[in-house]
Each structure stands twice: as structure tokens, then as C-alpha cells.
């Protein structure tokens, strides 16, 4: 559950935070000095990696909104409730700010590595508050929705993050949860847990404008305390071409259970029982507040500032890490 509208790295409006690696600057080219045998092995490895990547990317299903199963969600609410109440001591505020019906774009900051406790806590709260009958879709990284053992997440309404899938969700009248910060934000170092970091990705603003739907900022805190996140490893990811192969811009390094040193977090980790607090802010109707043709940068700056102020207030409430 990592990625927001980042299918196009540069976004449709925002500037590229991670420009594509130029040709010849990849791992294969760096092996040129190793001799013919080494070069051949490197090319073989690259071909294998591309093959795996192609398989993974092709497995990423086109959003089938009908895969969402309200009965399944309802039957699993007690399990979510147990996890959220006993482990995360989750607290969600301000759900009354979410419009009672109709499409809405929920824009959240993302925390907690690949375990994404904020999504779990918010999904439970949303489903119990509005009922499982209300359509609710979460945008996630291709890798997440294509993992066979995570296929159950699609029953919760999870779809691969792409502008097209988000548009289909909104067109169907659903509440769509997007994390613009995606893998960049979710793996930020733990000491940056109180920072909103969308990386100048602004596709969500355009999406809300195109569909004329309200934006509800959703701010969470605590996820970055479920492990000690050390670094995103963006340079390593770039050197290994993970960006081009798997759309992974990071290769995070963290210290957490049970691996102790956790590189990549692909298998997840056992999250520490950090208290997760989530707050939904009042809905923002772009054309009412910013005129008929809102300026993308202005909206981006306004919403992220609003979220940062809320996150600062939530951080000020916390006395101790993990305990909250």
C-alpha cells in the first residue's frame, strides 16, 4: 500500500523528483571493465531481472473495481479491529469531515514501511463509520497488488496506483484513498516521521480538478515508529535500476523485527505496537476555494501546508515514541 499517483514519474503536472537514469548509466554499463565473461554474466542477470520485472508488471491487474467484496470486508472487520485496538491502539478523528456520499479523494501521508499501519487503521475506521456498502478504494504500488499472497487486499478495494484506476474509482462514485508520497514517503527515516513529503507529486490535484471532487486530507502519525527506518536508499535503488524495472525508487534500510537489519522490506516486518493516530480534515472543494481554474502549485502548497500543520499538532501530542 505504498504508492499514490506516480505511474508517470514526472507526473502530469509536477516536476520529476527522480529523473530517469540516462542510457548507459545502469548496472550493466558499470560492468564493462570486468571482462567479457563478467559482461556476459551481467547481461544475463539484467535480462533475467527484466524478465522478472516484466512478469511482475504484467501481473499488475487492471483495476477491477468489482473485486472489492463488502461481505469479505465485513467478516474481517473483527480481525482488523483486534489489530487496530490491541496492537496499534488506533484513533481516527474527523471522519465526520468526509462527505456522507459521492466520490471523494482522500489524500494521505504514508508511513510505516511496507506494513502501512495507517492504511489498516483508516480502512477499519472508514468501513465501520460509513459501512462496508460504501465504495472505498485504496491505491497501492503495482508490486503490492501483484503479489499472489496479497491478493486478498484487492477484496478490500485495493487497486494499482495509476491515474486511470483512480479516475475509474471516482467515476464509480467511490472514495479513493491516495498516498502521493508513495514509496518515497513511506520509507522516510524515522526521525522525519513528522514531515509531510509528497515529493512534489501533484497528479492528485489534477485528478480532483478533472473530476470536480472534494479533497479530504488525511493525516496520520505513528507509522514511522513501527521500526527504525534508517534510509530510503534512493541511490542504491537507482544504481540497481529498480526504478526502471519495478517502479521502485527506493531500497529502504531499516532496523526491525524479525530481520534486525531489513533491506528492501519486501517481506515486510513485524511492526512495533506504535500508537497510530489519524485525523481527517475538512473537505476542500477546489473550485469553491480556488476559483474556476485552480493553480496546481497553489493547491499543492495549501494542502501540504494544512497537512503539515496538523501533523505538527499530532506530533506535539505525543510524549514518547511507540507509546504515543
Amino acid at each position: 500500500m505504498q504508492e499514490g499517483l506516480t505511474a508517470h514519474p514526472a507526473g502530469r503536472n509536477g516536476r520529476a523528483e527522480h529523473p530517469p537514469t540516462p542510457p548507459g548509466d545502469g548496472a550493466a554499463s558499470r560492468t564493462s571493465g570486468l571482462g567479457a565473461a563478467g559482461l556476459g554474466a551481467a547481461r544475463l542477470l539484467e535480462r533475467a531481472a527484466r524478465s522478472v520485472a516484466g512478469t511482475v508488471v504484467s501481473r499488475a491487474p487492471r483495476a477491477d473495481l468489482d473485486e472489492r467484496d463488502p461481505d469479505y470486508i465485513r467478516e474481517h472487520l473483527p480481525l482488523l479491529w483486534l489489530a487496530c485496538s490491541l496492537w496499534y491502539r488506533g484513533e481516527v478523528r474527523g471522519l465526520g469531515n468526509v462527505p456522507e456520499e459521492g466520490p471523494v479523494l482522500l489524500v494521505g501521508n504514508h508511513s510505516g514501511g511496507n506494513m502501512t499501519p495507517d492504511t489498516v487503521v483508516f480502512t477499519l475506521a472508514f468501513s465501520t463509520h460509513f459501512g462496508v456498502e460504501r465504495r472505498f478504494h485504496q491505491l497501492a504500488h503495482n508490486l503490492v497488488v501483484s503479489m499472489p499472497f496479497l491478493s486478498f487486499l484487492r477484496k478490500y478495494g485495493m487497486v494499482a496506483a495509476s491515474p486511470e484506476n483512480a479516475e475509474r474509482g471516482l467515476a464509480a462514485g467511490a472514495a479513493v484513498l491516495v498516498y502521493p508520497g508513495g514509496d518515497r514517503e513511506v520509507h522516510r527515516p524515522s526521525w522525519q516521521g513528522d514531515r509531510i513529503d509528497f515529493g512534489w507529486r501533484k497528479g492528485w490535484v489534477r485528478l480532483a480538478m478533472d473530476h470536480d471532487v472534494p479533497i479530504v486530507p488525511v493525516v496520520s502519525i505513528g507509522g514511522q515508529e513501527t521500526a527504525l527506518f534508517v534510509t530510503r536508499g534512493e541511490r542504491i535503488a537507482s544504481a540497481l535500476m529498480l526504478d526502471r524495472l519495478f517502479r521502485l525508487k527506493v531500497l529502504p534500510v531499516s532496523i526491525g523485527l524479525p530481520w534486525v537489519l531489513n533491506v528492501g522490506d519486501l517481506l515486510g516486518h513485524i511492526p512495533l505496537p506504535a500508537k497510530i493516530t489519524v485525523e481527517a480534515l475538512p473537505a476542500i472543494h477546489l473550485r469553491e476555494e480556488f476559483g474556476a481554474d485552480p493553480d496546481l502549485d497553489e493547491v499543492y502548497a495549501y494542502v501540504t501546508r494544512l497537512m503539515q500543520d496538523t501533523l505538527d499538532a499530532l506530533a506535539a501530542e505525543r510524549r514518547l515514541p511507540v507509546l504515543g
Partner: peptide
């Protein structure tokens, strides 16, 4: 309660 929720449902009901 929640029909069909199995053991987690039973646990959640008692803890709640």
C-alpha cells in the same frame, strides 16, 4: 456480532 467472522469475531466480541 459479525456472522461468519469465526475465531477473530468471537475474540473481538469478548474483548469488546
Amino acid at each position: 456480532g459479525v456472522a461468519g467472522s469465526g475465531l477473530p469475531g468471537w475474540l473481538a466480541e469478548h474483548l469488546a
